[in-house]
Amino acid sequence: MNIFRLAGDVSHLVAIIILLLKIWKTRSCAGISGKSQILFASVFVTRYLDLFTIFISLYNSSMKIIYISCSIATVYLVYFKFKATYDGNHDTFRVEFLVVPVGGLSFLVNHDFSPMEILWTFSIYLESVAILPQLFMISKTGEAETITTHYLFFLGLYRGLYLINWIWRYYFEGFFDLIAIVAGLVQTVLYCDFFYLYVTKVLKGKKLSLPA
């Protein structure tokens, strides 16, 4: 464990909690892409199956349980409890265009052709594009609530910090996992446009509205 990975995990946790609290407190999931939340929940479920087979550390297991439960709770709030506030007309990204290629790729490019490893690879590839329905929805509505932009900021930051963690681990431990690194790069690059808008608008107290 190094400071960048810990900061990344904290940033990820903050993002997940911000979203859950935003929906719970405002009793509304306006502007939130339920499709992205379903993708994130499947990312955690497919990646953390080893929760029951391998014990790495209390930290590792508890974070996995928190991520899985929060993401499933968020999906529940969006599609059931606050369904009336779900903006389905703008959440129209065709997720099959993500899941099918990602599913195919995880069979073709992986470290080991075993079920657990293919599921882990699927999860890594899926996570790198899981935010697309959310970003697509914001481009369709042309704006985002400020709290939602904070959620996106921490979510984007987390994998960026993981990239630094992988540089650190390569330099000090000689460890690197090309699949995770390439997917992490794609994932972080997808946020670049948002990061630019976040820094130039939201941090200056303006509302995030598109086109810029």
């Binding site: 391998i54 470290h111 993981y162 460890f175």
Partner: peptide, 10 residues
């Protein structure tokens, strides 16, 4: 290879 063993990251 060793990658499948070291899934110590979240």
């Amino acid at each position: 290879d060793d990658k499948t063993a070291t899934k110590d990251e979240l």
